[in-house]
Nucleic acid binder design. Structure first.
Lengths: 117, 117
DNA sequence: TCTTGACCTAAAGTTACTCAAGGCCGGTAT
DNA sequence: ATACCGGCCTTGAGTAACTTTAGGTCAAGA
């Protein structure tokens, strides 16, 4: 499929996909005879994963390492697993941050209410 | 107190505090006779709030609006309240994103396990 | 007295996009 | 046939939010 559809399906913007490809984050993207990118379902799966990893704060450098491993095939699955497990610990930390921030907001809003009534 | 202590207490870096002040995000910071910044407990409270708002993804522009209102005093509490309520909706969205990402990671890890055993 | 450490400013550098300029190409309306 | 449109292409500049660097002041300790 073409880039606009890959964007719609993955969540990433067209520009971001091109940028990610230039940064070697998206292996195996082939071109049609017109020079346009053609995305396979596997490509789109990968882009979708990148979208969620970025959305939840994985740094570019880690994504690059992850993509390099992915490009090397199944022999790197153990390494990729450990990257995803690390990221899942980061998700837990972020959830804690959200809880902490919620508390702080609740306290502030309480103080505002005192002023308001 | 001095800037390094304000940084330690708020969570922000020294450099970020200076940058935020330059961006008018931190009202009422006074200087000592040596030209150094002096932070009151109220300043530090404010910085801590900024730290958590940033940490949970509030854009700079919103922080600027929020800080401008804060600088104008109690008459703006209703507006500030609505900014914090908006942000708290954003927190909910982010929690959903984390859950969605967790699911995706779990599926990937499951696939990896199949390869690994 | 000399140096160390914490502070200061202004300006350049970095990250991760994002947008703009300019161009190619296939399809459709005139 | 030709004019125009939308979607793709590349390169390069622009942006946001810091972060680092360069260069300087000043008080206190060895």
């Amino acid at each position: 499929m073409r880039i606009s559809e890959a964007a719609a399906r993955s969540g990433l913007k067209v520009d971001t996909i091109r940028y990610y490809e230039a940064q070697r984050l998206v292996p195996n993207v082939v071109r049609g005879s017109d020079g346009h990118r053609r995305f396979s379902p596997e490509n789109v799966d990968w882009l979708t994963l990148l979208y969620w990893l970025r959305e939840t704060g994985m740094p570019m450098k880690v994504m690059q390492r992850f993509a390099a491993l992915y490009a090397q095939g199944d022999a790197t699955i153990l390494d990729r697993k450990s990257i995803l497990l690390d990221h899942s610990r980061l998700l837990a930390k972020r959830r804690d941050d959200l809880d902490r921030c919620d508390e702080i907001l609740a306290r502030k809003l309480e103080i505002y209410e005192e002023y308001l009534q």
